[in-house]
Simulated assay, not measured.
Amino acid sequence: MKDIVFYTYCKNSHDNVLINTLPCSEMDRLNKYLVTGNDNDLKCINSKYKIIDIEGYFIYVVAKNKGRFPVSRNSLDLYLELLIEVLSNIDEAVDKIKNDTRRILHNVVSLNSFNNQEFDSIFSPEEMVGLSHKKTITFMEDEVKKKPKSVAKSILKINKNSSEINYELDIFKYILNPNYVLRKSNQNIHRVTKRILDTFFLDFLDKGVVVELNTENDEKIECELNFDCLRYAIYNIFHNSLKYSKKDSSIAVDIYKELDSICIEFNMISLKIKDNEVDRIFYDGYCGDYSKINGSNGDGVGLYMSSLMLKKINGNITLERKEEYFFNNNTYQRNIFKIKVDLE
């Protein structure tokens, strides 16, 4: 088909033009045909064309002969087959981006709403209506003095939600642009993990869960990598630990080196994960059966996205299960989630 040139016009069911390589003369012919519906408007010497409506697409292809031999119908059909396959892949990619966008937008809006609720729980909006800027500050000062403990708790919750919004937005730029150059920096792994853990302090305290963070031999472990991806994974494991861990239990978080890798291990008693779910919990949208029974299941994307982001920095996340426990009609087991990042 080296002597044949293909020109393509394609739009979807929403009239969005996906592909248009038509020269002006061919575009004029197509526009005339779309008005008249007369096939003669598309005919041209040394070319063949085909119009199809398939699976929500309007496709117009023109094959022009640049050599001595006429264009065969087979070559045109073969080109269309390849084109339809490409369009299918484009649609899948677009759908994935749309779903990721919807999920992140939903999360960000929800977290922002929680922050607004925390603010409103301290400073009643009704009482602040109509106050001057100066009186508003005086009113807020008085409210803080009346309930300092409640204010402190709300500030911690707002800080946690704001951090999660930042993580979501950081990761979104990598989703939108898979070829985005990952920014690297040198940081202390213990310090990074501790900062994320601190945002969950109040929640773990309310649940009676004690989290112990240890670095092997109290060694200062630093490395050069993209910490946006690592922070996102650490945050999601702490988030899952909070949701699924047993009340009044403890979680050990151990940081250590393993040959040319750094490891962060989360050892906890949490809801049981079945044999056939060990790999599935890292799939997009999958939730474990025991979390569904318990009514604590989420949307099943946290571990999936964490796994995806860790791959970008030569890392992975695995699960090891040990002994089982039974408390208050719930089945638990010792679950050990391990983040491992290979250093370049």
Rank of each mutant, 00 (worst) to 15 (best):
L34I: 07
E212F: 05
L83W: 09
E55M: 10
D260R: 04
D39F: 13
V192R: 00
S47V: 01
D39V: 07
D77N: 09
S88Q: 08
V129T: 12
K272Y: 04
I264L: 01
N294K: 04
S124T: 14
F58V: 07
F200Q: 00
V341Y: 02
V210I: 08
N166S: 10
E258G: 05
K247S: 13
R73G: 15
Y325P: 13
N12F: 09
A252F: 05
K194N: 05
D41E: 04
S154E: 08
N316E: 09
V210T: 07
H190R: 01
K11L: 13
I262G: 00
I221C: 04
S185E: 02
S88T: 07
E320R: 09
V211Q: 02
E219I: 02
N330R: 03
E265K: 00
S154Q: 11
Y180E: 03
I97M: 10
V210Q: 08
F204N: 00
T331F: 03
S185R: 03
A152S: 11
C229E: 01
Y235S: 04
R73C: 15
I336S: 11
L343T: 04
V109T: 14
K247R: 14
L105V: 15
N240S: 10
L30I: 06
F6A: 00
L105T: 10
N236I: 03
N335E: 05
R68A: 12
K292L: 03
A63Q: 04
K66P: 15
L202H: 11
S110A: 11
N217D: 05
T36L: 12
N112R: 08
Y332C: 06
N46F: 14
E258F: 06
N226F: 02
K66S: 13
K2V: 14
E168I: 10
I84L: 12
F204W: 03
V151S: 10
S291Q: 03
N314L: 05
R280P: 15
L205E: 09
F227N: 00
E26K: 03
S113M: 09
N166M: 09
T215S: 02
G208H: 08
N217F: 09
A63P: 11
D170W: 05
L80E: 05
L319Q: 01
Y167L: 08
Q187T: 02
